[in-house]
Design a protein around this nucleic acid. Structure first.
Lengths: 210, 210
DNA sequence: TGTACATCAGTGAACGCGCGTTCACTGATGTAC
DNA sequence: TGTACATCAGTGAACGCGCGTTCACTGATGTAC
């Protein structure tokens, strides 16, 4: 998948052997999850879409949960890349960079709501997956670094972490409410760049005295 | 279920007829959803737990999605009641009342994570359910009214609605991150009453100039 | 360059399973007279 | 108060279905000499 030069872009009907099946299966599952929801996918249907027999997936994945984990892992890579790209498109340390991370997050959720839900624990038996856990932490790290740079404090600072977590909560909640259609007129205003900037600033700037 | 005097509290082995089955089924599904996750339940298993044949549920619900809708509907009633109780336990118009609504929300999610996920769109084919939609709006109404009272503005005010939505996003996101175990040390601090108060105040008080 | 062989990635048939739903039925309940 | 009867809420057997997974297999690929 990663060391693959260009075959994955072409339909690559591919020979008998090696049609880049692993990546094709993940793509098929992504499609299924988007159209039928998380848990609305089956190994059989994914194999069908990839044009192979129902036994073929087991040459690449141990079992059904392993396929889901593969999809989630790949999705987390893309999510983190999107967040980083968002941050990089504004001056380091600016509040705009912080808001851009949030905006990238929401955009991802909107673009792939099924996969987004899958990433966030909607599937059973994913608790035992240390690699996924660490990928999640790396995503959070993007938020923390942006917040730290903006506040001029080290990322290890516990107030920075608390505020970054609050920002994440806000953006995460907005993402879910939006894809669940629970949104109102009010939710549309948050997509407004100005609102996102303002609420980000408020959360970062809130006086934590104690 | 509602007009039932006291039978639902007792195990109520009940006669052949009428053992308050509808309510018992909903309770069984709640249990299943908590232990096996949303979509991890089956009509057959729910019937088994309620001690009836697998055909019995169809006397009370049209089909499987209808059972899910019943569970969600009942859960939304309880969620709204909890939010209202939270608001009522502090002076009307106080920021504490606003924060208490949020705290009730998070407590609900923590107490019944499976049902909470179910409520928020994780199940297929619930798009066609106007009664659920309106129940959701009534929940949001609790937040809006608390925010309006605190700001001294009418609930119809669009800024009030926008800020209420932001509060809801924040609390919703925190709820999900918490039950998904995506939380860190940082998330625990938000359960701290003082933090919740502060961030609520920040969101309500943020300067929306435009 | 050619051959022998281990490995790899697929096939396709088969399995057992539990599910959602239906059906004709039956016993208990509530009501009219 | 008693009886006749409509209705209601259950039974249990049966159906067809698609799924996850295994199995022995086979043809293509890559490598050693």
């Amino acid at each position: 998948m990663t060391e693959d030069p260009a075959a994955s872009t072409a339909p690559a009907r591919a020979a008998y052997h090696h049609g880049d099946l692993r990546a094709q299966l993940i793509a098929a599952v992504r499609e299924l999850v988007e159209t039928h929801g998380p848990d609305g996918f089956s190994v059989a249907e994914a194999a069908r879409r990839a044009g192979v027999s129902s036994a073929a997936p087991y040459k690449h994945f141990k079992d059904r949960p392993a396929i889901l984990r593969g999809v989630v892992s790949e999705a987390m890579d893309r999510l983190r890349a999107a967040m980083e790209a968002g941050a990089a498109s504004y001056p380091a340390g600016s509040i705009e960079a912080v808001a851009a991370v949030g905006r990238a997050y929401v955009s991802f959720a909107r673009a792939e709501p099924g996969v987004f839900r899958l990433v966030f624990g909607l599937t059973e038996g994913h608790e035992t997956a240390p690699d996924l856990q660490s990928k999640g932490e790396r995503c959070f790290g993007v938020v923390v670094r942006a917040a730290a740079a903006c506040l001029g404090l080290p990322p290890e600072n516990s107030d920075v972490q608390a505020r970054a977590y609050m920002l994440w909560s806000f953006v995460h909640g907005h993402s879910f409410l939006t894809i669940d259609k629970k949104s109102n007129v009010a939710s549309d205003r948050i997509d407004d760049w100005f609102y996102l900037l303002t609420v980000s600033g408020a959360i970062l700037g809130l006086p934590i005295r104690r």
